[in-house]
């Protein structure tokens, strides 16, 4: 298969730890500009796959390519983040003792070395970019509050905003609506759809209702490999998927 037009290309990836094969010969291809939802029962390897893509974990075997020709297995987290892969954690992880504004400021695309950070003065371009992101994630009225004071759902949005500030090409979003109310979930769907217009996105989620709302191609993982792939209707009609979700 050609890697030419892909943003992410995994082929034959395997990784095991503690004697457990978390990813087993996984192959997955994401085209540029595509949004994909990944579903699968607990322990299917969804988060481990993200660990591999973002450089937190090295695969035992297989190929992982970003943007067609960058071998991700040769780079670490910081490198990969700079190349343009943003990741939202399963548990929302923001800088709680900083204001929302500072959270975004630290995430903005720009030099990542110590001295520029030490003598940094905020430019008007940065300020307007921050305003823009606040407009997207709709937290502008809380900008001077500490991130610790946000609700769980708002933290999820702030974290997505931080990802956007990085200006990545690919966003990996792990369980963005966990713990959200229906209203919040709807907001998140809107936000992700907005983002997907200009970015490639992978969303990992359990919530089938949410996945349906997204209306994108779905990949179902099970025991570290792809079980089924297609539209949600196709996947949920697949007997093996039903079996995995409902038990035998």
């Amino acid at each position: 298969m050609s890697r030419a037009n892909t943003i992410l290309y995994l082929d034959g990836v395997s990784v095991s730890f503690d004697g457990f094969r978390a990813i087993n010969n996984l192959s997955l291809v994401l085209d540029k500009g595509e949004m994909r939802a990944i579903i699968g029962p607990n322990g299917a390897g969804k988060t481990t796959m993200m660990d591999i893509v973002t450089g937190k974990m090295r695969p035992d075997a297989g190929e992982v390519y970003f943007d067609g020709d960058v071998d991700l297995t040769r780079h670490d987290e910081a490198d990969i983040a700079m190349m343009g892969i943003g990741r939202k954690f399963q548990k929302p992880t923001v800088f709680e003792s900083h204001t929302l504004e500072d959270n975004l400021l630290l995430s903005l695309k720009g030099p990542r070395s110590i001295l520029p950070a030490l003598f940094h003065r905020r430019s008007t371009a940065e300020t307007s970019r921050i305003d823009e992101i606040f407009g997207l994630i709709r937290l502008g009225d809380r900008r001077r509050d500490l991130a610790a004071s946000l609700s769980h759902g708002q933290k999820q949005w702030l974290e997505i905003g931080m990802l956007l500030a990085q200006d990545p090409k690919l966003l990996l979003v792990d369980e963005p609506v966990a713990g959200m109310t229906d209203a919040e979930t709807e907001e998140t769907v809107r936000l992700l759809k907005d983002i997907a217009q200009t970015h490639s996105v992978i969303v990992v989620e359990h919530d089938m209702h949410f996945v349906r709302e997204l209306g994108v191609k779905v990949t179902c993982l099970h025991e570290g490999k792809v079980l089924s792939e297609g539209t949600l209707d196709f996947v949920s009609a697949d007997e093996r998927v039903v079996e995995v979700y409902l038990g035998r």
Binding site: T54, E77, A81, T93, M162
Partner: peptide, 13 residues
């Protein structure tokens, strides 16, 4: 101090 891995995934060393 508060979220080391978050800084790494934002590209900071």
């Amino acid at each position: 101090r508060d979220a080391e891995s978050r800084t790494r995934f934002l590209g900071w060393r």
